[in-house]
Design a protein around this nucleic acid. Structure first.
Lengths: 348, 348
DNA sequence: TTGAAAGCGTTACCAA
DNA sequence: TTGGTAACGCTTTCAA
């Protein structure tokens, strides 16, 4: 049932301010009886120039009375640069881990006096997106995922970005890179299963679009963990949906697997429930391990083994950005920042 | 263990472009051998003026060769307005429901040729935040939650915002409002529990900060559902944490409750597990109902009853914004947009 | 201590 | 069909 907006009767339009023009610093100057330069000095309290206290007060009062707010575009146009840090807004629902990382990052960059903005990049592809971002002339651009190519980096730098940082699987020519190697997650899990004697391993791969940047490396990591052993790895497509899980569980015994890496804890929970409903004993018949170390994993029975993922601290990234902005000539840094460790509980 | 960035040796700095200045339309004009006006005409393909095909080509080639990207600030300064829609970035991890809503909204606004930007409002409070947003001179501002007061609306409108829309519990003078009344969620749940004969009802309230805008109305809604009845409502603070849940469960029988509304499905799962570990039978001894209708609720045993929440469609909101931008004089619209319906499963 | 003026990158009007 | 020019709002240098 599509939801329909229901309008609620409202108080009639209160005196619409008849499109009063937006106050400028010139208006403030006029009202305060000073020049625009003085206004600028006062409002930015420029230390190089001393303005008398009464004048300062008059300016502040005028500004407040008019509701004056400086115009960021004009300011940065004049200054020739801005303190805007741009990152594309995530297009997929993002877990608590990443949310917290973004938050920390925004906070840390805010402390360094940058303004962080997440750009709603909708249908834009690769370089087209880079061009759209470049129009805002951000001083730095942070790009999660693999969407940005060397071309995009060039566009951004040409248009004045002093730092371009990718957060993803591989580094891009000319950009700083925070390597978040999700292969390590799969590898970890695979190694763990191998160590516990499992040899016929399934890997869940979400059917949901947009998750490939995570799911495929994780799968590859598991494969790598079993390379050159006598074990077999099978990938299993699964939609995040009860029935799909039930169908998979129904043919589980035919698959003859003794372990499964479930992409993440949520898919693990989905699968575990379906398997248990099917009477598959966990971990005896099939070991299950998830990833992301969500609280929910601890609540399952058996308690879910998982791969704990450690993202870099937002503060560290903020500092990297600041360093890069201050010295744009420096060689791009590449950091390996994804920590993956197995948390062994009862499901494996 | 704080995570430490490990630097990986990198290829030496490739010829740093020695801070080549950012190309402007004047550079393009020079290279193409035309005037800046012509460049503008060509690149915006202004229909009012006909430019010869060879000239167009020369301009396009010059632009591409220089990697020219127009300067949004200069453009909007000149134009006197922008198509920027600003919303504060969420500061708490946000569920799949809201993520999808935001995404849809961005997509729909993108189709209407707006640029959506989520502003990383960190430590800024109320009107201070509004002023920071106003500096960007957005054409519209969308504010979830209750952070914006009438003052803030005034600031934004004074600085040229043609539409201010709040998405929250109550409407604000001068702004359009999408009322998302979380009381309805609690009310629904309470009514359901009452109908099923429960009279001693607990309401979980998350201890985690930042959730109050949701948790308190939900609590209030439950209270309202039981107003004037013989039932009693008890609020229970709970941190999202296994031990906290265990402690609460340990004193559960002493609390003598026959039902609980668990704020949302995640807290419900947390509590349910703790209660079950304590031997409390669900739903016989205590009925449990969550909210948000997450997939995970269907996976619990007993299956979790929940309140399904329906947010407005992103398209509808995008259209509201567009309407408001086109006719800023119109009376603010108020829409009741949160649909709440009980999904009765086995836990209640 | 304050004011006048230039200039940032664009676009739109008016002339050529 | 094309080019000169002014103006958007702000900061900053220079001069008074």
């Amino acid at each position: 049932m599509p939801y329909v907006m229901v309008q609620i009767p409202n108080t009639p339009a209160l005196a619409s301010p008849a499109a009063r023009p937006v106050p400028t610093s010139a208006d403030v100057a006029r009202l305060a009886g000073v020049s625009r330069a003085t206004v600028s000095y006062v409002l930015n309290n420029t230390s190089a120039v001393r303005i008398s206290e009464p004048t300062r007060r008059r300016v502040h009062e005028a500004a407040k009375e008019l509701g004056y707010v400086p115009h960021a575009a004009a300011r940065s146009l004049r200054a020739g640069h801005s303190r805007l840090v741009l990152m594309p807004a995530p297009t997929i629902p993002v877990g608590p881990l990443y949310s917290q990382f973004i938050n920390e990052l925004q906070w840390a960059l805010g402390r360094l006096d940058y303004t962080v903005v997440q750009y709603g990049t909708v249908g834009l592809q690769g370089d087209e997106a880079a061009r759209a971002w470049a129009e805002l002339r951000p001083v730095a651009v942070l790009v999660p995922g693999a969407g940005l190519g060397p071309q995009g980096v060039t566009v951004l730098k040409r248009s004045g970005a002093r730092a371009v940082v990718t957060l993803g699987p591989e580094s891009v020519e000319g950009a700083h890179a925070l390597l978040m190697d999700h292969e390590a997650v799969g590898f970890c899990a695979g190694r763990h299963l191998y160590d516990r004697g499992r040899r016929r391993v399934g890997v869940l791969v979400p059917e949901e679009g947009g998750l490939e940047p995570f799911s495929l490396p994780r799968l590859k990591g598991v494969r790598r963990a079993f390379d050159g052993t006598d074990a077999a790895v099978t990938d299993l497509l699964l939609a995040y949906d009860e029935q799909a899980a039930a169908r998979l569980a129904a043919r589980w015994r035919a698959l003859d697997l003794d372990a499964v890496f479930a992409y993440n804890d949520e898919y693990a929970m989905l699968l575990m429930r379906a398997l248990q409903d099917e009477g598959v004993r966990i971990p005896e018949e099939t070991a299950v391990i998830g990833a992301d170390d969500l609280v929910l994993g601890r609540l399952l029975r058996p308690r879910l083994s998982t791969v704990h993922i450690e993202l870099p601290s937002g503060r560290d990234l903020a500092e990297l950005v600041d360093r890069a902005v201050r010295d744009p000539g420096a060689a791009p840094e590449t950091h390996e920042v994804l920590g993956a460790t197995v948390v062994h509980r009862d499901s494996s």
